[in-house]
Computed example of a mutant assay.
Amino acid sequence: MNFLIVEDDNIQLTGLKHIIEEEYADAVVNTASTYNDAITIIDSFDIDIFLLDIDLGGGKTGLDVCGYLRRIPKYNDTPVIFITDITVPNLDVINKYHCQYYFSKPYDRIDVVGGINSVLTQPDDQTSRIRVKDIQGILFHISMDEIIYVCASGHHKHIFTSDGDFIVTNPTFESILQAAGDVPLVRCHKSYYFNPDYIQSYDRSNSLITLKLAQESIPVGRKYKTIIETYQENR
């Protein structure tokens, strides 16, 4: 697994390299302290994970490095972790470059390993995930097969998954359905879609679906009853 660390502080660069080599036995750690050195390595090697300090010297930044590598097709989806001096960085800027993770200085071994492990455990199949932005402005990915149901609430969408619940700012259900791929999210109500793989039971008298891992039952609208009954019968 090939890493590239771009950091203009030699002490921090050496420390990061040491942490990665200790924690990941198969790691090959490339390092650069300037934009030009980073570009040379990007053009010469295949890199699996980038750790980029945003605040480089010499009039260039880690964002410039990321902008360069994102223009190379093979690095369209390669994990990028930003390192920043800002406790709460501009998330819109970070999201623009499809950054998967960031941590702020000063950081420790737990921050570094946690960030790397986070991007390593993301699914390789990008088509099985959707990219959404939560109400805090943080961009993240959700695996489609983990979605239990989706509920509209005003201008927001609540996505309930087997890995947690998220409130997102996607404008319509359609934006989620278009990304659903082979996962058949089914409409059961004007405000609800659900994943039939999670059906546990259907209460016909009260028009409620109980879904595995969901804390509450969800309603079934009158016009959708036949569809839901068909799913239940074919389970």
Results as ranks from 00 to 15, higher is better:
T40K: 12
V186L: 14
I54S: 03
Y149H: 14
L13H: 06
G67I: 01
A25S: 10
Y202C: 05
N10K: 13
P89D: 13
T121E: 14
F194T: 03
G67H: 04
I39F: 05
P79W: 07
D163H: 14
T210L: 03
I142G: 02
L120H: 01
D182A: 13
L52E: 07
T40D: 08
I199W: 01
D182F: 08
Q178T: 09
D64Q: 05
Q232D: 12
Y202H: 06
S44A: 06
L139K: 04
V119A: 10
D197I: 05
I199N: 03
D165T: 12
R129A: 01
D145C: 07
H18P: 01
Q122Y: 08
C188M: 10
M1V: 08
A32F: 05
Q126D: 06
S175N: 13
N10E: 13
I116D: 00
L16I: 00
S33R: 00
Y101W: 06
Y107A: 12
D8I: 12
I209M: 05
Y231T: 03
S33W: 00
P123N: 15
Q178G: 04
I11S: 12
T84E: 14
S201F: 07
R235M: 15
Y102K: 09
V113E: 11
R204N: 02
T161F: 00
G114P: 04
L4Q: 06
M144K: 11
I54A: 03
N206G: 03
V29W: 06
I86K: 08
K74F: 00
Y149F: 15
G15S: 12
Y35I: 08
